[in-house]
Nucleic acid binder design. Structure first.
Length: 654
DNA sequence: AGCACGCCGACT
DNA sequence: GTCGGCGTGCTC
């Protein structure tokens, strides 16, 4: 250790102008403790103030010529920031015009002293279990070679459910990903499996347990306690190859030797990180794959337009199951049944017949668009949405005959009058929610068990006995052996939303539900025609994705182009856009958002991405550090300029 | 964010 | 002549 060695530190601060490395000298007393990756405290601008930081590297000299301050102290001897994760955080942040710090907050859980103590205490080398490599089924030799060759693929998942050795049923894709992960671990490399939510996670974990001992399976998600999360994180810093399964931030999990990143259903909005700088798990995975050179699998039933773009570029190879057995999906017009009971439940005749025949033999899944009883209450006289008299929130009814209450503040609306026309009578508008559909179907099928699965009543499994399972989209339980029929009831209503992604989302919701059907069982898609219906009936979602992407290219909508939203005062936004170095494809706006704020949308090609991102970033830093605010004495209002890349929100609005 | 440095109006 | 206003800029 040379006495001139310095530590390069990333300081924990939300300020964009501090988002770079600071050089510190290392006092002799700390020479052996200051190593790359450890948490430190460092003085920042006038001693006395100390900031938390992470040592990115220890070097002979840095890029700073001035006098250096000394590292104040080492917080913990554990190197929690690996060089690989640092590079990933830096590049992900740069791509999104954000701070590496914000990524590191997602990547590194908060410190837990007790957990660290036990971790450091248990240093005796645990015997590493020998793992046999399973073959990945359904895809020939392809996926096994994906893991060995470290290729990048878009995988069409095998529809259906599979029984595990312990008698539990999971979606077949969970077994596929578990097999790929186990094959990776057997080669001595860590596999990271990223899934949208805890229910997917449970399935993948159950499937993994068939191939790996429990000590090699790490769960990483926001629902577990901080100590549990930190314990799992610290295990990732070790030498043992693991299978790690978790939500979007798991893509940043540390791994000595990373062999595979697999991401299930990248179109699910849960993969979009809601915290700045809003880096989507798909993009983080792509960056990490490129840096690390590991295998990469995007698996789904319904291909996203983003993945389709990468397939067309040749960046991802499309891989399909060897035998193309797919669910039988029958689109049907929304023609109501002649049966009065079916009419009451607003069920089309084909769906009605299908359900009646199938429910004699086992569970039938009914997918509806919304939870609850009724989506909307309106004034019976003027038709305006009925609103709460206290807070103007929309009124909703929980069950038949119950008093309407406000969906925002919960106030019961006992004596309501319309604010538009003074009417006092309410009426139900729109399609029924899960509760009301359940009531109607319960009456129509007397003696059949009715199960509701939605956000309020989460259910992961149902058995194989006859039942009507009413589920909101995305909340469908798994039926042992698969459903005997699937009714996709509210297609019309789901498509009716005005949004860039409706078609893609609908195809995803329906495909994921139809994939729960038993072999040979029929799925009825009601009220939907055209290309979406064709895509479902032929189970060729990739074709639809290609068409969708073609349309986006014509409209110059993402993901055909990249976008950035620039928000702030008119002057700041105008300046930021005027200073862009390359001519962006075009600029939309500015539009007035009220309270002296405007927003412009910049559209540009992927090739201009890094240049645009860094230009907007330096503009942001200039705006944040320079003139603090145009107005009087530093009021803590919104900053003069905000920048967000790949912000789809303006395109999603209805 | 904090906090120092810096260049114009009232003060012993 | 200096004390201090807070606009401007930096933080290794």
């Amino acid at each position: 250790m040379s006495e001139s060695a310095i530590a390069r530190v990333v300081v924990d601060s939300p300020l964009p102008q501090l988002d770079r490395l600071f050089d510190y000298s290392i006092p002799d007393a700390l020479a052996s403790e200051v190593v790359a990756g450890v948490r430190v405290k460092v003085p920042l601008r006038s001693a006395g103030r100390v900031a938390d930081g992470l040592v990115v590297e220890v070097a002979e000299r840095g890029g700073f010529d001035g006098p250096l301050s000394e590292i104040d102290s080492v917080v913990s001897p554990i190197p929690v920031l690996t060089p690989e994760v640092w590079r990933l955080a830096r590049q992900a942040a740069d791509r999104a015009a954000g701070s590496a710090n914000d990524i590191l907050r997602l990547a590194i859980p908060g410190r837990q002293v007790r957990v660290e103590k036990t971790f450091l205490g248990a240093t005796e080398s645990e015997p590493i279990p020998v793992v046999a490599s399973p073959t990945v089924q359904h895809y020939g030799e392809t996926i096994d070679s994906v893991v060995t060759d470290r290729s990048r693929i878009a995988l069409s998942a095998v529809p259906g459910v599979t029984e595990l050795r312990d008698g539990r049923w999971v979606r077949t894709w969970a077994v596929t990903l578990a097999q790929a992960a186990a094959a990776c671990v057997a080669r001595g490399d860590t596999a990271i499996l990223v899934v949208p939510d805890y229910r997917d996670q449970n399935q993948v974990e159950a499937a993994l347990a068939q191939y790996l001992p429990p000590e090699l399976i790490i769960r990483a998600d926001a629902r577990q306690s901080n100590p549990d999360r930190y314990r799992g994180f610290l295990r990732g810093l070790g030498d043992t190859a693991l299978a790690v399964v978790g939500n979007r931030s798991t893509v940043y999990f540390p791994a000595k030797r990373l062999g595979l990143i697999a991401l299930w259903d990248d179109g699910d909005p849960l993969h979009a990180e809601p915290l700045a700088p809003y880096v989507h798990a798909r993009d983080a995975a792509l960056i990490r794959q490129e840096q690390r050179g590991c295998a990469l699998i995007f698996a789904s039933h319904s291909r996203s337009s983003e993945v389709q773009r990468l397939v067309e570029l040749g960046w991802l190879i499309a891989v399909d199951p060897v035998r193309a057995a797919h669910p039988k999906v029958v689109p049907t017009a929304h023609q109501l049944s002649d049966d009065p009971m079916a009419q009451r439940a607003r069920i089309p005749s084909l769906a009605w017949r299908t359900a009646r025949e199938a429910v004699a033999h086992g569970p039938v899944l009914v997918q509806v668009a919304r939870p609850g009883y009724s989506p909307r209450l309106a004034c019976a006289d003027c038709g305006q949405t009925a609103r709460c008299l206290r807070c103007s929130g929309p009124l909703a009814q929980r069950s038949a005959g119950s008093t309407p209450s406000c969906s925002w503040c919960g106030m019961l609306s006992t004596s309501w009058s319309c604010s538009h026309c003074d009417g006092t009578r309410l009426r139900l508008v729109g399609a029924a929610g899960s509760t009301r559909t359940a009531e109607d179907l319960g009456r129509a099928f007397p003696g059949v068990r009715v199960i509701i699965a939605d956000g309020e009543h989460p259910i992961e499994h149902v058995g194989s006995s006859p039942a009507l399972v009413i589920a909101t989209r995305g909340a469908e339980p798994i039926a042992d052996g698969g459903y005997r029929a699937v009714l996709l009831l509210d297609g019309e209503q789901m498509i009716a939303r005005e949004s860039l992604r409706v078609a893609e989302d609908c195809l995803r919701w329906w495909s994921n539900a139809a994939a729960l059907a038993a072999p040979g069982a029929v799925s009825v898609l009601s009220g939907v025609g055209g290309e979406l219906a064709t895509a479902m009936a032929t189970w060729r979602q990739a074709d639809f994705a290609a068409r969708e992407l073609r349309d986006r290219r014509m409209l110059r909508f993402p993901p055909a182009v990249r976008v950035a939203t620039v928000t702030g005062t008119l002057a700041a936004v105008a300046e930021a856009i005027a200073d862009l170095p390359v001519e962006p494809s075009d600029v939309l706006g500015p539009v007035d958002l009220g309270s002296a704020t405007v927003r412009s949308i910049v559209r540009f090609d992927y090739s201009a991405g890094s240049e645009i991102a860094s230009a907007l970033r330096s503009e942001l830093i200039r705006s944040a550090s320079g003139r603090r605010s145009a107005a009087r004495g530093g009021r803590p209002t919104t900053p003069a300029l905000r920048v967000r890349l790949d912000d789809l929100e303006p395109f999603l609005e209805s």
